[in-house]
Simulated scan of single mutants.
Amino acid sequence: MERSFKLVRLGEEQKTVYVAYFLKEEAIYWWDSVKALEEVQPVTWTRFKELFLEKYYPRYMQKQMEMKFLELKQESMTILEYEKKFTELSRFVTKYVNTDEEKAQRFQQGLEYWIRDRVSMFEIGTYAGVVQKAALVESNGAQSRMKRDIKKRKVFHQKERSVSGYQQDRIVKRIGFQK
């Protein structure tokens, strides 16, 4: 809503009225009852936000979101999935990501060890930079694993062929045939 305030150039007095217009269902009833109880009329935008968050985003939920954010690790997620979850949760805990550098550090701390180890060598100070490097490292790691797997399969098949060739020679000799 605050982004739209800039777009429509609302003054402080009009913000609460504007937002109240967009409330729906139960929120309308909540707002009507709160308005009736508030001593100061009209209710300021700052006070509206306090009341709204108190009702729809209570302290215990804020703490839960904070814990989810602090415990967030990449684990089995891809970099893109991890970044999406990180962005989603960081909205609720801005005190931990006040600056771009803090955001970059927090993101980097949650990366899988092998990715974090490689990304940290670059000493990147921006969030976008860390995300980009992490995605690049992840991509290169996936390509390396694919190449390694292909080599393993080739070696395995070569060994398998040489073993089966050896077994055929033994069978042929045992029966008494010559090649």
Rank of each mutant, 00 (worst) to 15 (best):
Y127C: 06
G110T: 08
S120K: 08
K151L: 11
E102G: 07
Q168N: 06
K103W: 05
K133C: 02
G129S: 06
K152G: 03
E123S: 10
V137E: 02
E101T: 06
E112G: 04
S144A: 15
T94W: 03
S162D: 12
G165C: 09
R170V: 14
R148V: 02
T87H: 00
V130E: 04
D117M: 00
K103N: 02
R118Q: 13
G125R: 09
K95V: 07
R91C: 09
D169N: 06
G110Q: 01
D100Y: 09
K151I: 12
R106I: 00
Q158D: 12
Q158S: 14
S120M: 12
G141H: 12
R170T: 00
K103Y: 05
K152W: 03
V137Y: 05
N98A: 15
F107Y: 15
I115S: 03
L89A: 05
F156W: 10
F107E: 00
Q158E: 14
L89C: 09
S139R: 13
E160D: 12
Q143H: 09
L136Q: 15
A128C: 02
I115T: 06
E138F: 09
R116G: 04
K173H: 02
I150G: 06
I171T: 11
K159T: 05
A142F: 11
T94K: 15
F92T: 11
L111I: 06
W114S: 07
S90M: 11
Y113H: 12
A128S: 13
S164M: 13
V172E: 10
F92E: 07
V163I: 15
M121I: 05
V155Q: 12
V119K: 03
E123D: 14
S139F: 14
Y113F: 11
I115K: 08
Q158F: 13
R153G: 02
K173F: 08
A142W: 02
Q167G: 07
V155R: 10
V163D: 06
E123V: 04
K151H: 13
Q168Y: 14
Q132Y: 07
S164G: 02
K173R: 11
V155L: 15
T126A: 04
G129T: 06
N140V: 03
V163C: 02
A134M: 05
K151G: 02
N140Q: 14
E123F: 11
T126H: 03
H157S: 04
D169L: 11
N140P: 00
K103Q: 10
R91W: 11
W114Q: 14
Y113T: 05
I171A: 12
E160T: 05
V163G: 08
Y96L: 01
I124D: 01
K152L: 10
Y166R: 08
A142C: 07
